[in-house]
């Protein structure tokens, strides 16, 4: 049996829009465990950007997060590099815990950049909020596969997911797959997904005020991806993540 036989394929739900050919030789067992103690708050930011000018290869980040009673875990990420860039998060929420995620995928060429989450509301009164914004051009693809499970006794769960894609050129694509498995009855779950293009009326309006096509595009993209960072309450990190995404746009489109 070749080694490839044990790799995931696109038939696996969580890899449906991925580039599984890019997984050859990649260590898939590499999950990092994060335990957030009861009442604590942990925030992580992660950035997948070009390394030493290299924008290829496969970059996989896999997190298994357990959020204790009344605790809070925040994850903000930008995937702006790699042939396949994937951030995968499995989260289990205890009573009254909160999970906050803001994700941005950006890129062109023939790349796949994706967030894949599985959030288990295992106890009552926990909340989760996930916002993903994807901006692509060339043959670039951005995905958000978000699975939410609410167990039978996890009453008063409040879970929200929002995805928006912005396609700057023909040939780029985005995919959103929300999956809700809800076994409790007193639960709020909201999810929304949309895809669109740049507003050309706005761009002419901005040009009429003196903004070049590059500047108006940058401003509109900044406004678009800003949604994913509104909950990031750290100005320096906010700016850093925004710059990674906008630099990608400036340099590669």
């Amino acid at each position: 049996m070749s080694e490839a036989a044990i790799l995931p394929t696109r038939r696996d739900e969580a890899w449906r829009y991925s580039d599984t050919d890019a997984l050859a030789g990649v260590d898939l067992g590499n999950w990092r465990a994060v335990d957030v103690a009861p009442g604590e708050t942990v925030r992580e930011t992660l950035v997948i950007e070009d390394e030493n000018g290299n924008a290829d290869g496969t970059r996989l980040t896999r997190l298994r997060v357990s959020i204790g009673k009344g605790a809070r875990y925040e994850l903000f990420g930008v995937i702006a590099s790699a042939h396949l860039g994937r951030v995968e998060v499995e989260v289990t929420l205890a009573e009254g815990a909160h999970f906050e995620m803001g994700g941005i995928t950006v890129g062109g060429r023939d790349t796949v950049r994706e967030f894949v989450t599985r959030v288990v509301h295992a106890q009552p009164h926990a909340t989760s909020n996930q916002v993903v914004r994807s901006v692509h051009w060339g043959q670039g693809t951005g995905n958000f596969l978000g699975n939410i499970e609410v167990v039978r006794h996890a009453q008063k769960t409040d879970a929200a997911q929002s995805f928006k894609g912005l396609l700057l050129e023909k040939g780029a694509s985005v995919n959103a797959v929300p999956q809700l498995e809800i076994f409790a009855d007193d639960v709020k779950c909201a999810h929304g997904a949309s895809v669109g293009q740049m507003d050309e009326n706005a761009r002419f309006y901005m040009a009429a005020r003196g903004l070049s096509p590059e500047l108006s595009r940058r401003l509109l993209v900044q406004a678009f991806i800003g949604d994913a960072l509104v909950a990031l309450d750290d100005e320096g990190e906010h700016e850093r993540l925004l710059q990674v995404a906008l630099d990608k746009l400036d340099k590669h489109l």
Binding site: Y205, M206, A207, A208, G210, L211, P213, A223
Partner: peptide, 23 residues
């Protein structure tokens, strides 16, 4: 180009000014 016309001193007041969410 449109933005060059603006820099050259032309201003267009729009009959229907455009909304730009997030900016």
């Amino acid at each position: 180009e449109p933005h060059e016309r603006a820099a050259a001193g032309l201003f267009l007041g729009f009959q229907y000014p455009v909304e730009i969410p997030g900016v």
